[in-house]
Nucleic acid binder design. Structure first.
Length: 245
RNA sequence: GUUCGACCUCCA
């Protein structure tokens, strides 16, 4: 079954969904029987191609056959609707999921939070964070990163740095994405000096900036005509591991 | 042990 699931994934990557579906039917006949992973793999493939209706259809097929949609299945679909900006449908799926007795986990919550944040509805994202905490589901770095990014995007840098503090207070270690989100937020409101401080902070904390982090700063410096400073940053990159790309 | 879901910039 692992082998077949790997094949299914390959077919999906090549967008050969018809072959993937045929293979599943063939598996139903001759075994090994497709399992939840088989279905989830194809559903995820459809979602990546934005074929949400096909994805839903396959979930119903899954339901009608042997494997009930599980937490991962719901997560894939909820994520897809969030990415499409359709939070109404995403929340409707979330409710359906709960009706079926499946409890959201940190991934599902984070996906929903991201959906709201991408629409600028950070308040709703924060409400979900509170809901998680009430239910003793621990938010992880990705959850906080998502909210920090959302706050930055609506220009609430103070909110973002508060969230950053809260995250650390709760024992969640900021990662490169966290710092990079802050650097991006600070640059976008012209606080380049503070962004550079964050850059230094992350180096202190042993979270090596990536080429993306440097790009954000370089982009900002160049936009402001500070090309000389940009070259200094390039020097810093070379001094550390990073190869400018 | 090996297969499915969530996080960063620009460009295309």
């Amino acid at each position: 079954i692992y082998n077949f699931n790997i094949l299914l994934k390959g077919l999906c990557k090549n967008r050969e969904f018809h072959k993937a579906i045929s293979l599943v039917r063939e598996m139903r006949r001759n075994g090994p029987l497709p399992d939840a992973v088989s279905y989830n793999t194809i559903i995820s493939g459809f979602c990546k191609e934005k074929e949400l209706e096909k994805a839903l259809e396959l979930m119903y097929e899954m339901e009608a056959n042997h494997s009930l949609p599980g937490l991962v299945t719901w997560g894939i679909l909820i994520d897809a609707f969030c990415r499409a900006g359709n939070m109404e449908e995403a929340m409707a799926l979330y409710e359906d999921m709960k009706c079926k007795g499946i409890e959201a986990d940190v991934v599902v919550y984070t996906v929903l939070i991201r959906g709201f944040c991408d629409r600028g509805e950070v308040v709703k994202g924060k409400a979900l964070l509170d809901e998680m905490l009430q239910r003793s589901i621990s938010p992880n770095a990705i959850t906080y990163n998502t909210l920090i990014r959302g706050l930055c995007k609506i220009g609430q840098l103070k909110g973002a740095s508060e969230m950053f503090k809260i995250m650390m207070e709760r024992g969640v270690r900021p990662n490169v994405y966290t710092y990079t989100a802050l650097v991006d937020g600070l640059c976008s409101v012209d606080k380049t000096k503070e962004a550079l401080q964050i850059l230094n902070l992350m180096i202190e904390k042993d979270e090596e900036p990536t080429v993306v982090t440097y790009n954000i700063i370089l982009n900002k410096l160049c936009k402001d005509g500070l090309v000389g400073d940009a070259f200094k940053v390039i020097e810093l990159m070379k001094k550390r591991d990073s190869r400018p790309d």
